[in-house]
């Protein structure tokens, strides 16, 4: 059962138990992301994307199917995962530096306190937060808080970075800034990423593989590979190729929402 995929989700089916009976959210879902790859997952609202992140993080177990990370089956949380959410969930009583250092207090590490601090400072300067180390989260803007949250999710050098709509609550300009920050982070930090998003432009700008999930219960409906030959710039979003990709994805989302059929006027 060995593949070169770092994240391998095989035939996962899951249902939540509710008062009205089981609510199926994932149906025979297959996702595989190579080491160092970055996959974006898009799909209609409430289709089970967040459930997928919780499965990869080991926060819950699927009813059937298997989740594999780096050749090991995931059954419980593993410290090789980093998470960031739409809500930056920084601890208001800690400085930005101490917030970023939080995972290093949990994960077993051989680093000394000084090394931990250096590691956090290095990441903070990478995302442009140099000079804000001693500020409290409440003193920072929304975009800066999200940058700090990204640093926290990477500080323990996780193999897998799980991003659950981390830029969803930001204004358009801040969001584009953060996209570029993500590319800067990827250039410096080796990780395999899964990004949940509602923004198709975000998905093609950041990822090298875009997965479209069908409506609930979600299954993998469409996979688009995006070649990563050159460093991407925001200008790349306004090329004919980008427009073409966005069109295809938009159409796939319409299918997932049940608003268009497969035989329709596929772009």
């Amino acid at each position: 059962m060995t593949t070169d995929a770092l994240i391998d989700i095989k035939g996962v089916t899951h249902a939540y138990q509710t008062a009205e009976g089981p609510l199926p959210v994932l149906d025979n879902l297959n996702v595989s992301v190579n080491e160092g790859g970055f996959a974006a997952v898009v799909g209609p609202s409430g289709c089970g994307k967040s459930t997928l992140t919780r499965l990869i993080a080991g926060l819950m177990k699927p009813d059937t199917g298997e989740v594999w990370l780096h050749g090991a089956r995931v059954k419980s949380p593993r410290s090789t995962v980093g998470m960031a959410f739409q809500n930056p969930v920084l601890l208001e009583w800690r400085s930005i530096l101490k917030n970023v250092m939080l995972p290093l207090e949990i994960v077993p590490t051989k680093l000394t306190n000084t090394q931990k601090e250096d590691r956090a400072r290095e990441l903070l300067s990478l995302v442009g937060l140099e000079g804000f180390e001693d500020k409290r989260p409440s003193e920072l803007s929304g975009g800066m808080r999200q940058r700090a949250s990204l640093c926290r999710s990477l500080v323990h050098k996780p193999e897998v970075l799980i991003l659950d709509e981390p830029f969803g609550a930001l204004d358009a300009f801040t969001r584009e800034d953060l996209w570029q920050t993500m590319h800067a982070l990827r250039a410096e930090e080796p990780f395999t990423g899964v990004l949940i998003t509602h923004d198709l432009r975000e998905s093609i700008f950041l990822a090298d593989q875009v997965l479209v999930l069908s409506g609930r219960p979600a299954t993998t409906q469409y996979v688009m590979d995006i070649p990563t030959d050159a460093p991407r710039t925001l200008d790349d979003l306004y090329t004919p190729e980008a427009a073409e990709r966005l069109n295809v994805l938009r159409h796939q989302i319409e299918i997932a929402q049940g608003r268009a059929s497969d035989e329709g006027e596929a772009a």
Binding site: G58, P77, M83, F85, V89
Partner: peptide, 14 residues
């Protein structure tokens, strides 16, 4: 307590 706070630490095995 927002579930994300819990998840941040739980995903690290806390």
């Amino acid at each position: 307590l927002e579930p994300e706070y819990r998840d941040i630490l739980r995903s690290l095995g806390a």
